[in-house]
């Protein structure tokens, strides 16, 4: 019985109306028999959505509420009274908070161009024909930095950039430069965390660009190679259009990642020396969990969240055009 109905529905769908609505004999539009009820999607989605509401949205609302309170758990006697926008006012006039955002921006501007250029070079090397085995090997090893535990990257950084026995200074000495107190000086510490970030994320850029390069239709690339011997012209006129979506994704994703960046920097420098590597996540963590001023830290986190939402809307708007 149900089988017949289903078969008829399928037949009707195939032969008469491929579209979503089927006109019944009475001429009234009705929902086609899709084989599931109105609530079916709900039952499949409910567990995941409810879980995310409970563990993602509820704490976020809680943070929003906390951001309007005086909430210092190191001083519980004062209670947690509502104080309106006082936390926001103090955050927005807090020069250290702005400085940490500035350091984060400076970090992004420092590492991203290097990662993009190096990544592009690596992608071009991997795209070139020949060297099958070595190419496969290089392709596989690129995954190693990406998978390395961020905290362990920090540990490795502490070893490599050690003033007395680090290999970074050995390299400097080999090229005739003096040893340098990397982690003990503001510029050195900033450079050290930048280098570790470049090590970890250049492969990501390379793999994205490699995917873009392999999207160029073979015959177009061949024809262009016959036309010109200049690799630069090939890159600029033929390959670049295929690289741009990946580049856009990188610019946005990496900006979100730098705002998130915590583990590696926390292990390597804890934001120091001074405030040289005090990225925004490190600063908020310190306000929340060293000073225990959770009200102020929540206000900072909410501001960071707003920034993140803007970035992710941008990402979706630009990169998932076809879906919308």
């Amino acid at each position: 019985m149900t089988r017949d109905v289903a078969r008829q529905a399928v037949m009707r769908k195939k032969t008469i109306m491929p579209e979503t609505t089927v006109k019944s004999p009475s001429g009234v539009n009705r929902v086609p028999n899709r084989g599931y009820g109105r609530w079916t999607p709900f039952w499949f989605l409910a567990p995941a959505v409810l879980t995310l509401l409970l563990i993602g949205i509820y704490p976020t609302i809680f943070a929003l509420v906390t951001s309007f309170r005086r909430y210092n758990i190191a001083r519980p006697r004062e209670g947690f009274p509502f104080i309106g926008f006082e936390n926001y006012a103090s955050v927005l006039t807090d020069s250290t908070f702005w400085a940490s955002l500035g350091t984060t921006a400076r970090f992004y501007i420092t590492v991203l161009p290097i990662e993009v250029m190096l990544g592009l070079c690596i992608a071009l090397l991997l795209h070139k024909t020949g060297m099958g085995f070595l190419k496969a090997l290089a392709r596989v090893t690129l995954v190693v930095p990406l998978a390395t535990t961020y905290a362990v990257v920090g540990l490795i950084g502490r070893l490599i950039f050690n003033r007395d026995f680090g290999v970074a200074n050995q390299v400097l000495n080999t090229f005739g430069f003096d040893s340098f107190d990397w982690l003990g000086s503001p510029a050195g510490a900033f450079a050290a965390i930048a280098i570790m970030d470049i090590w970890q994320w250049t492969p990501f850029c390379a793999l994205i660009f490699l995917a873009g390069l392999s999207m160029v239709p073979g015959e177009i690339e061949e024809a262009a190679r016959l036309e010109t011997s200049s690799k630069w012209a090939l890159l600029k006129h033929v390959q670049l259009p295929y690289l741009l979506p990946g580049l856009t994704a990188l610019l946005i994703l990496r900006s979100a990642d730098v705002l998130k960046l915590f583990d590696m920097v926390f292990v390597m420098t804890r934001g120091g020396p001074g405030s040289a590597t005090d990225l925004v996540s490190i600063y908020i963590q310190r306000v929340g969990f060293r000073i225990f001023d959770l009200g102020t830290a929540s206000a900072q986190a909410i501001l960071l969240l707003i920034l993140t939402i803007v970035i992710s809307r941008l990402y979706i708007r630009i990169l998932y055009k076809e879906v919308q």
Binding site: T60, A63, S298, L304, L305, T308
Partner: peptide, 15 residues
């Protein structure tokens, strides 16, 4: 998808 961009520090405080 937006959850991918979320900074953990935002949730770490309320949690």
């Amino acid at each position: 998808i937006s959850n991918r961009m979320m900074s953990p520090i935002v949730l770490a405080l309320p949690v």
